[in-house]
Amino acid sequence: MSFDTPHGTRGAKLPSKKLMNWINAWNMRRIRGKASKVMGFPSLVLSTAGAKSGAPRHTPVAYFPDGSDSWLICASAAGAAKNPDWYYNLRAHPDKVQIQFDGRTIAVIPEQLSGQAREQAWRQIKSNAKRFAGYEQKTDRELPVIRLRARPNPAS
Rank of each mutant, 00 (worst) to 15 (best):
I73P: 05
T105V: 13
A107H: 07
F41E: 12
G115F: 02
I125R: 02
W86R: 00
A78Q: 14
P84V: 03
G67K: 05
V45M: 00
S70I: 04
L44G: 07
W22F: 13
K34Y: 11
T105Q: 12
D95K: 06
K37L: 03
P15V: 10
R30K: 15
R123D: 15
G54F: 09
R118Q: 05
T48S: 05
C74S: 12
A133L: 09
A51N: 07
I125Q: 03
L46G: 01
P84C: 01
P110A: 04
N21H: 12
R32I: 10
L19T: 07
G54D: 05
S43E: 01
A107Y: 04
Q116K: 11
S16D: 11
S76Q: 04
N27V: 02
A75G: 15
S47E: 11
R57E: 07
W22R: 14
S68Y: 11
N21D: 15
A121M: 09
L19D: 10
N21A: 15
A81G: 06
A35Y: 13
M39S: 14
P84A: 03
Q116N: 08
W86Y: 09
I31M: 05
S127T: 15
P60S: 08
K52Q: 10
V61F: 03
S16R: 07
G40T: 06
S127I: 11
Q100D: 10
T105M: 12
G67N: 02
K126T: 15
G134I: 07
Q124A: 13
A81H: 06
Y88W: 13
W86Q: 03
W26M: 11
Q98M: 13
D66Y: 07
A75W: 01
K96Q: 13
A121N: 04
A55P: 00
T105N: 12
A81T: 02
S43N: 04
K82W: 11
I106W: 06
R131E: 14
G115R: 06
L19S: 06
R30W: 07
W86M: 02
S16V: 01
K130L: 14
P94Q: 03
S70G: 14
S114Y: 12
P94G: 04
F41R: 09
G50S: 00
I109H: 09
V38D: 02
K82F: 11
S114W: 08
A92M: 01
L113C: 04
N89S: 10
L90P: 07
P56R: 12
V108H: 00
G54A: 06
V97H: 04
E111T: 15
G50Y: 06
P94A: 04
Y63A: 10
A49F: 02
R32H: 12
V108C: 02
A49G: 07
R32D: 14
